[in-house]
Every structure is written in C-alpha cells, then in structure tokens.
Design a protein around this nucleic acid. Structure first.
Lengths: 237, 237
DNA sequence: GTCTATAGCAGGATAGAC
DNA sequence: GTCTATCCTGCTATAGAC
C-alpha cells in the first residue's frame, strides 16, 4: 500500500518562484549569451521540477523537455546538474532577503503600546504566511534532502534564508528596546522566541505532512504568539 | 568547490538506533526464518547507511555488503528496497514512544512551585538532548527527504514521533492545570509553546547545519524556555 | 550556440544452481 | 533460504553535425 506511492499530481499552479536572471558563479567558464531567454526558461523549469520531485528524481532530460530545449543546451548553460541546482537554491533566497529588508520599516511609525501590538500582529501574520507557502516549504524540504551530500549549500541556504530573517528580527527587537517600547536584554533570543512560538509547530508539521492552515488556526497562532512575546518582554512599570 | 562535495566520512560510531526485531507488515508473504540474525544484521546495516547517506544514495549492494550477506538475501528478507526503508523508519520510532511514555511520571512527585520548576527544567533538558541527537536529526532529514515521494510514510513518522510527544506533553500540562500548579486553558498550545521555545531554533538550524550545542547554550535555552512557560502559565494569585 | 545520437555506467531486481 | 551471475532500465554527460 504505502510502497506503491506514485509521484504527486503535476499541480499546474503558475506560482513559480522568481529566480534571479543571472546569478552566475565565479568559474562558469566563458560567458554565454542567453539567446532568447532560454537560460531563464531552463531555470524556471528546473525550479518547478526540483521543488515538486526533488533533486535526484528530476532528470536533466525532464528539465530540458519542460523548458523546450535540448539536453545539451542545459549543459551549455549551466555546466552540470549540481551547478544548476545550486544556482536555483541560492537564487530563490531573494524572497527571504526581501522579507528581512522590509522588517525595520514595519515598526517605524510605532510610538505606543497599542500601535506596537497592532504592528507585531501584522508582522506575525505576514511572517507565518510567507513561511508556510507551499513553495517555501518545498524549498526547505529540497535543501534538507541534499544537506548530507551538499553541506555547504545547506549552510549557505540557512544563512541567507532563516538566519537572515532571524537576525533582522533581532535588530527589530533591539530597536524596540532602545525606544523603550519593550524591555529586551537579549534581542536574538527574543527574535527566536517570537519566530518559533509563531512558526514552530506549523513548520515542523509542514515538513512531514503538508496541509493548508485554516484561517482560524492562523489567527489563534498569531494572537497567541504575540501575546506571549508582549507579556514576556513588556516593560514593567 | 561546492560542487565537488564528497560523501561524509564513514564515522565509525557504534551508536546505532535499535530497531524492533520483527515489525513485519501485513502482506510480507510467507514467513521467513531469520537464520542466525541475518535479518537483524541487514536492518542494522541499512539503518546506518540510510541515516548517513540517505535513501537514494544507498544501494542495496552497499547494504548487503555492509551486512555481509548477498543482495539476494536482502530481497528475500525484505521484498524490496522500499519495504526495507519503511520498516526501518517506523521501527525506529520506539525512541519517541519511550520518551512519551515516561512523561506522565516526571511530574508525579511534584506538589509545589519549586519542585515544578526543577522538574520542568530536568524534563526540558532531556527533551532537548534527545531531539538533538545526531541519529534523531538524521532520521528527520531522511524522512523529510522522502516526504514528497512517500507522503504516507512521512505522515506516519510524524504521528508516531513528534506528534505523539506533543500529545503527551499536552496531557502533562493538563494535569498541572488540574492539580492547580499552573493555569492552562489550552494544554495543546502550552505543549507546543514549551516544545518550540525549547527546540525551535536548534532544530531548525540542525536540519541544515549540524553542529553540537555547547553546554552553555543548552543551559541558557533550557532555562529561558522554562522561565517563559512558567511566567505565561503561572496561576495568578 | 543548438540539436540528435550515443557512450558509459550504476542500480534495482531476478534466474538458476546448491 | 543463500549465493553468483546477469538482465535491463534509466541516468549523466559527451561527440559530432549544423
């Protein structure tokens, strides 16, 4: 029963992650003109297939076919399968960078407890929504799958993704301390508290058993996480 | 550089997870005598190799060779590679079951705040230590790696492992509420708070970048998680 | 730079003797 | 039930023509 599990259905959602157009490595050899967006098409197709099927289960022939080019073109553009994979995984971290870059601004107009409460709730909601995106979960699974074989890639992904967001959250909490809106002695720990009170359970379950979170559960999780963080780090009078 | 990553060194630690001797499925065909512990030897070798290299990267020939039997014996004993894999993954959840089964007892002699504090800290320390074991982390990575292809297996693992422990923690918090040692309206949520305040960051990082936690970090994490949980769920006078 | 065709190899699973 | 030898599929990567 469990042994005859077939591949997942080809889910025709057009929700592909954007990848940077040309994040070429240092030693890619002679520059290749991207004649007519072929390179981007290959990257798009490979992203889709890797996320849905994993690295090993995706053949270069599948990628070439999905991108409507020949196998040889894939090799001409990316060298080999590993390079293509690395470029895609690291190119996709743009999402995390954008999220982290926006964080400082979210607390800008906040000058009192009521506004802080609202701003934190809004932030938590966005954070949870982004992380629980099927694409983000799939990318996490994909990188974890290859973590044993490509430890540097997994470490680089962690640095540019989760760790970067946590660091930005730490800066945010440090700022709230400076502005005396909260009392935060260890901003890094406060950031982790916030992040994992909010994401921990959903993310853990999402790695094993993908499911869409009901709105009620999202609301309850967001509210509870913010409540606990505010109570823990409130400035006692 | 990143492309030429070799397999990890063959780390000769004898720390193999125990697997149940004969958790045979329903339709394994005619019973096979395990002549001289061959079956167990194969399971042991396969567990070691799967955890270190992953499912795809481990060939049946490697398994047979490591178990000092022929490939055909592997097929005679387990049918095919997937069956062998499933049996190992689900057999290993004994660790989680044992941990969950012990939980109710840990709060048995507790009758006051000071004892509660100490008991929670001891429990947190054990919990963190168990989950951050290299074997447990490797098993998580292994199951996540195959989650797309074997969703039922990943779901079953989650049920028997992480979910079972969370449920047992929920029962524990419910008991603390009943005994008026804490005020816990939603025991399941309290359990998740405790678990992910404690494990969240280390577990998340551990999926991507394995590293041993320094003692100081363990202590700080345990103390902080217990502090936050006790403050959040304390019974207000 | 792009295509078609193919080399070269590894891995899962099986046949047939004992 | 166990072993040795083998089949066959599918994959990465390359050769050679245009």
């Amino acid at each position: 029963m469990a042994g005859s599990a077939a591949l997942p259905p080809p889910s025709d959602d057009g929700l592909l992650l954007r990848i940077s157009p040309h994040p070429r490595g240092r030693d890619d050899g002679p520059a290749r003109r991207d004649t007519g967006g072929r390179r981007a098409a290959i990257a798009r197709a490979a992203t889709d297939l890797f996320l849905r099927q994993g690295y090993q289960a995706t053949s270069t022939e599948q990628i070439a076919s999905a991108a409507a080019v020949s196998k040889q073109t894939v090799y001409n553009q990316f060298g080999d399968k590993q390079r293509l994979f690395e470029e895609i995984v690291l190119g996709v971290t743009a999402t995390a960078e954008a999220f982290a870059a926006d964080l400082p601004d979210t607390m800008h107009g906040v000058s009192g407890p009521t506004e802080l409460d609202a701003a934190l709730r809004a932030l938590a909601r966005r954070y949870l929504a982004v992380v629980m995106t099927p694409q983000v979960l799939a990318l996490r699974r994909l990188v974890i799958s290859e973590a044993t074989r490509y430890p540097e890639l997994a470490a680089a992904y962690y640095e540019r993704g989760p760790a970067r967001v946590l660091a930005a959250l730490g800066v945010l909490f440090a700022g709230l301390d400076t502005r005396r809106l909260l009392r935060v002695d260890d901003p890094g720990r406060a950031a982790a508290d916030f992040a994992f009170l909010l994401l921990g359970r959903a993310l853990d379950e999402g790695m094993f058993r993908p499911r869409a979170l009901p709105t009620a559960e999202i609301d309850a999780t967001v509210d509870h996480a913010v409540d606990v963080v505010l109570a823990t780090y409130r400035r006692r009078a």
